[in-house]
Simulated assay, not measured.
Amino acid sequence: MRAARRIGLFGGSFNPPHLAHLALARVARDALQLDELRWIPAGDPWQKPASELAPAKDRAAMVSLLIEGEPGFVLDRIELERVGPSYSIDTVRALQARETSPSGAEWFLIIGQDQYRRIDTWRDAAQLRVLVCFAVAARGGESPRPPDAWAGQIHHRVVLPLARTDLSATEIRQRAAAGQPVSPLVGEAVARYIEQHRLYRVPPGL
């Protein structure tokens, strides 16, 4: 019997959330035997142009639709409710500070291998590697590499094997802008939301 809860943190702009996100989250939940996996939409992603983002309330609503009925998946609005840029270190510190389990928790930050490769550029990355175990998605059998600056630096990492996919949020936004169907990429519920709220449509005259 494990002494501590195992919590996964899965952050991103989710602009929009799609089936590749869902596949990764399922792999992480099952491989890491997570008690809970928190989906954390970024309020103000510091590495993304704000002009490309759907409103935060819409991105949160789409995440909620995508994960509905999935055991252990929870939508966490912590970054949507915080003013200013969304930094992972601030989120991790805040979540760990409010953890009330008597036996504590183990924390896993779920990221892609491209993010892992440049994670030394993140705010307070050296502190972040002390607070969490990085759960890195390895696509197509590739071996994730840490940043060169972390050579010889101790940190905890687990690899999540994931089937290779070319699915991207950029492609989905482009298809939605062109009025093309996106349900094979995001699922029926999210596709209906995008259509009903006319997300990612190009304004007339542009």
Rank of each mutant, 00 (worst) to 15 (best):
R2D: 09
A3M: 09
A4W: 07
R5F: 06
R6V: 08
R6A: 13
F10S: 06
G12V: 04
G12H: 08
F14P: 10
N15H: 00
P17I: 05
P17F: 06
L22A: 10
L22P: 06
L22S: 08
A25D: 08
R26N: 07
D30S: 11
D30N: 13
L32T: 06
L32F: 02
Q33F: 09
Q33P: 05
Q33V: 13
L34G: 04
D35H: 10
P41F: 14
G43N: 10
G43C: 10
P45G: 05
W46L: 08
Q47T: 02
Q47W: 01
P49L: 00
A50Q: 03
A50V: 05
E52L: 03
E52R: 05
E52G: 01
L53M: 07
P55H: 05
A60G: 13
A60T: 14
A60H: 11
M62F: 03
V63C: 15
S64D: 15
L65G: 00
L65E: 01
I67D: 07
E68W: 08
E70M: 15
E70D: 06
E70F: 11
E70Q: 14
R77N: 13
E79P: 13
R82P: 13
G84F: 09
Y87C: 00
Y87H: 11
I89P: 02
I89F: 08
T91D: 03
T91S: 06
T91N: 04
T91E: 07
R93Q: 08
R93T: 02
A94M: 14
A94D: 06
A94F: 01
L95R: 05
Q96C: 09
Q96R: 14
Q96T: 12
A97S: 12
A97D: 11
R98V: 14
E99S: 15
E99K: 03
T100K: 10
P102K: 03
E106K: 10
W107F: 14
F108P: 04
L109A: 07
I110F: 07
I110V: 11
I111V: 15
G112Y: 03
Q115F: 00
Q115V: 04
R117P: 02
A126P: 08
Q127R: 02
R129I: 11
R129H: 06
R129L: 08
L131H: 01
C133E: 15
F134Y: 09
V136N: 15
R139Y: 05
G140N: 05
E142N: 12
E142T: 14
P147L: 00
D148R: 12
D148W: 13
A149R: 12
W150M: 09
G152N: 04
G152C: 08
G152A: 09
H155L: 15
H156Q: 13
H156A: 14
H156I: 00
V158W: 05
V159I: 15
A163L: 11
A163M: 07
A169T: 04
A169G: 12
E171Y: 10
I172T: 00
R173T: 04
R175L: 12
R175D: 01
A177I: 01
G179P: 10
G179K: 06
V182H: 08
V186G: 03
E188V: 09
E188D: 13
I194P: 04
E195L: 11
Q196Y: 07
H197F: 05
R198D: 02
L199Q: 13
R201M: 01
R201Q: 15
P204G: 11
